[in-house]
Amino acid sequence: MSTHFNEGALPWLMTAIAWGILIIGAVFFIRRQKNPAPFWKAFFVIIVGVFTISYTFEPKGIMVRIPILPLGVWILYFILRRENGRWERYRRFAWFGFAGNILLAIMSLAAIPLSFIIYPTDNPTTYLSNPQEVSIIKSHPAGSEVSLDHNKLSEQLEGMKEAKTDGEMWYMESTVEDENQTTSPERFPYVLNGVEPMWGSGLSPLIYVEGDGKGLLILSGDTQYYYQLSESIIKGGGVE
């Protein structure tokens, strides 16, 4: 199965850290020069040097920009070369800004494995962090009026194990075979309402509940997980 992360808090945090390191590094770099240029001018040149033409891709849904062409450096070169010695004086700051893009790319790439560590995709608590606050609603006519057993859901959530899915069998089960049958059967006639994933994950899960209350189907982006429970988490509707 593939896994998709939307832009959550972690990529933004890693980018903010990278910018913090870049700004602090720029201050130290400027002050360490033997013949320092005016601070604000040197700092401005560094910021312009950050602008690049980049190759952008999204591994696991996290945007990463790899610098290709130093657009900011070129702009500064054509502007500063008009006066003798200005480009030579400021070019080190322009290239420092371009190099900062490498740090930004590294931090973005580092967010990918960190996301899987902090938000494990095979752990149902990543998608359902508030089991005591959710409710269950009927999403298909085949469902009955039932209520959610919050205690049983909470007790089993941590120990849930992923089970194999059989999409072909489920499709066959949901097919109307009898002309007198008014509605098709549905394996997951309920959905959990008010689901909150782990804070900062950027996930948008949709969690379906099996008709007997002993199975959860979690959908998030292009991710699909099916979990079987030892005890039913629903009450009423003829379910024991």
Rank of each mutant, 00 (worst) to 15 (best):
G202I: 08
S184K: 10
M198Y: 01
M172I: 08
S144P: 00
L203M: 12
S139F: 00
P197N: 09
L153N: 04
T183E: 14
S201F: 03
N180A: 11
M160R: 04
P185K: 06
R187M: 13
D166L: 01
P189S: 12
Y190S: 09
K152E: 14
D178W: 12
P205M: 04
E179H: 04
K164P: 00
V209D: 07
T183F: 10
M160D: 01
L157S: 05
H140N: 14
P141K: 03
G194L: 10
E168M: 13
R187I: 15
K152Q: 13
I207V: 12
D178F: 13
L157Q: 06
E155M: 06
D149N: 15
K164Q: 09
S204V: 13
D166R: 13
P189C: 11
Y171A: 10
F188L: 06
G202M: 09
T165Y: 02
A163S: 14
N180Y: 08
S147G: 09
S201L: 06
S174V: 01
L153I: 03
D178S: 12
V209S: 08
Q181Y: 10
P141Y: 01
V146E: 03
N151G: 06
E177A: 12
E177P: 00
D149E: 06
E155P: 00
V191H: 07
D166E: 10
W170K: 07
E186A: 12
G159H: 04
V146W: 08
M169D: 07
E177Y: 11
A142S: 14
D166V: 00
D166K: 10
P141W: 03
G167I: 13
M169W: 10
E177L: 15
L203Q: 09
I207L: 07
W199I: 12
V209M: 11
N180T: 10
N180M: 13
F188A: 05
T182D: 14
H140P: 06
M169G: 00
K161L: 01
S139E: 11
M172Y: 11
S204P: 00
V146M: 05
W170N: 15
M172C: 00
I207G: 08
W199T: 14
W199Y: 13
M160S: 03
N151A: 11
E145W: 02
S139M: 03
V195H: 06
E158Y: 07
E173Q: 13
S154L: 13
M198A: 14
P185G: 01
Q156C: 03
E177H: 12
H150P: 04
G143Y: 04
A142C: 00
E173W: 05
S204H: 15
T175S: 05
S201T: 02
P205A: 03
S201I: 01
V209R: 07
K161R: 11
P141A: 05
D178P: 06
D166S: 13
G194C: 09
E168N: 14
M172W: 10
L153T: 04
R187N: 12
N151M: 07
S174K: 02
E177I: 14
S201Q: 03
G200F: 05
E196Y: 04
W170D: 15
S201R: 08
E168Y: 12
L148R: 02
E145T: 12
E179I: 09
M160L: 13
L153W: 05
I207K: 08
M160K: 04
A142W: 12
G159I: 05
N151R: 10
P197A: 09
